[in-house]
Design a protein around this nucleic acid. Structure first.
Lengths: 152, 152
DNA sequence: GCTTGACCTTGCCACCATGGCAAGGTTCAT
DNA sequence: ATGAACCTTGCCATGGTGGCAAGGTCAAGC
């Protein structure tokens, strides 16, 4: 859905009245930054924005909607790649919810393994820290462990 | 402790006998890769390695020990910066264990907030996925949520 | 002593998602 | 017409790692 290029000099004021937005405004409305929006465009996550005669990007409320979708997907920790897939599923009326669910479950599994990894680091370190005097003396089970000495 | 530069042609064989190691061997023994070891040297985490006449890096068993320390600290998720501090504490006989403990506890807190963040992503996504049919139909609460529609 | 293959050297680019800065152009209200 | 606020592109940086390329060195076998 390519917008007709806006040509008049008062294009932006006019555009605003009609519900068009600058990249800064689109950023505010979507919870992203202008930088991210340009980046997503370069990744072809979103179509190239229409431009004013002065080469400013122009966004519609439909675009804002897409940007919010991306912002929300990022907040779930999906990668750009996964978000690309999610966007195409979203746009595809004939998608099977199974595909979405599978992608989500794969991501949940990824999150789970990251969580488990961090938790095991946390547990091991907390265990060492618990036995550290934490005073003026130099002996420290944390350093001892890092140095490869047997515990105790 | 600068090693005298080894000059003879049979330097490496000789070095090996005396307990000196090439970067590849040091990598194997420490659980790192040659690339990482060079990187750590460039970060000044470890002192510049002695070189053979042919410019090969040479490591002693003390160096291997340090490299293992780094490898282990990485496995706890410490950043390079933090590892720099840990190394200097390790080397400092007059350190206070309090400093080590404080660093560890700060890192535990960092891990905790990352864990919490991932868990909240996980919980929200799992909640949506649970209500997704996951069949051939297109309706999907996951996409609906990303699209900003009210739940249900 | 020469060849060979394994290893080493440096240097650059890529990842991932983002931020920062610079130099310049546009918009729009005053 | 001026000026503030915004936009443009482009490059570099982050952090920690991997990959590749072009070249040099090592050690062993002949």
């Amino acid at each position: 859905m390519v917008m007709p290029a806006v040509k008049s000099r008062a294009e932006f004021a006019e555009a605003k009245e009609r519900g068009f937005y600058s990249i800064g405004r689109a950023a505010e409305l979507s919870g992203l930054t202008p930088k991210m929006i340009r980046h997503y465009e370069s990744l072809e996550l979103i179509p190239k924005a229409t431009r004013t005669a002065g080469d400013y990007r122009v966004y519609t409320s439909a675009d804002i909607h897409t940007l919010r979708f991306i912002q929300r997907a990022r907040s779930f920790g999906f990668s750009m790649d996964e978000i690309g897939t999610l966007l195409s599923l979203w746009r595809n009326q004939r998608r099977a919810s199974e595909q979405v669910k599978r992608l989500a479950q794969k991501h949940i599994a990824d999150l789970d393994s990251k969580i488990a990894e961090l938790q095991s680091m946390r547990a091991a370190l907390a265990d060492l820290a618990e036995h550290c005097h934490g005073d003026a003396r130099p002996d420290c089970p944390i350093l001892a462990d890092l140095a490869g000495l047997p515990p105790q």
